[in-house]
């Protein structure tokens, strides 16, 4: 009882134990679903953009339930920027690699020159690579949009 009272006194206004615990339980499943949507993008509804938004919204949920400092400890601004830029480089890199190997921009069947899998398999696999890049970039943009809007660009307290 004493421990509970100490814990509630330590919490500030607007932080509830129920919301924090349920967010803590939900976040891994939300991230797993986001990865599922990205990976299954080429034969079911969904894809890089939707999966990236779901992945980003899991970090937004963390920043809403806890304060922004603790969410920045889990996913720093630097790591976020690195992930987003990696996504953009994967997208442009795959497209440019296709052009270098003799096809058009984003014509994945040209990648058959590098690893001979057959043009049909390369079309399927190339879409997968591009969707991973799109998902990373969209996740980074969504998270940093919320961080900047929620703390007015100061990155301290958040909502």
């Amino acid at each position: 009882m004493k421990l509970l009272r100490e814990r509630t006194e330590k919490q500030r206004l607007g932080e509830s134990l129920i919301i924090q615990t349920s967010v803590r339980l939900m976040v891994p499943f939300v991230q797993l679903f986001g990865l599922y949507v990205i990976v299954h993008g080429h034969y079911s509804p969904g894809g890089g953009f939707q999966g990236g938004v779901i992945l980003g919204s899991s970090f937004v949920m963390l920043a809403l339930a806890f304060d922004q400092k603790s969410s920045l400890r889990l996913m720093s601004e630097r790591a976020n920027a690195i992930l987003g830029n990696t996504g953009a480089i994967i997208f442009v890199g795959v497209g440019a690699l296709c052009a270098i190997c003799g096809g058009l921009f984003l014509d994945y069947s040209a990648l058959d020159v590098l690893i001979p899998l057959g043009p049909v398999e390369w079309r399927s696999f190339g879409i997968f690579l591009v969707e991973v890049g799109v998902g990373l970039a969209v996740m980074s943009i969504m998270v940093s949009l919320f961080w900047d809007l929620g703390s007015a660009g100061k990155m301290d307290e958040g909502l």
Partner: peptide, 8 residues
């Protein structure tokens, strides 16, 4: 996401 961004 856009609802959360609007509220923020």
């Amino acid at each position: 996401v856009s609802t959360v961004l609007f509220i923020a």
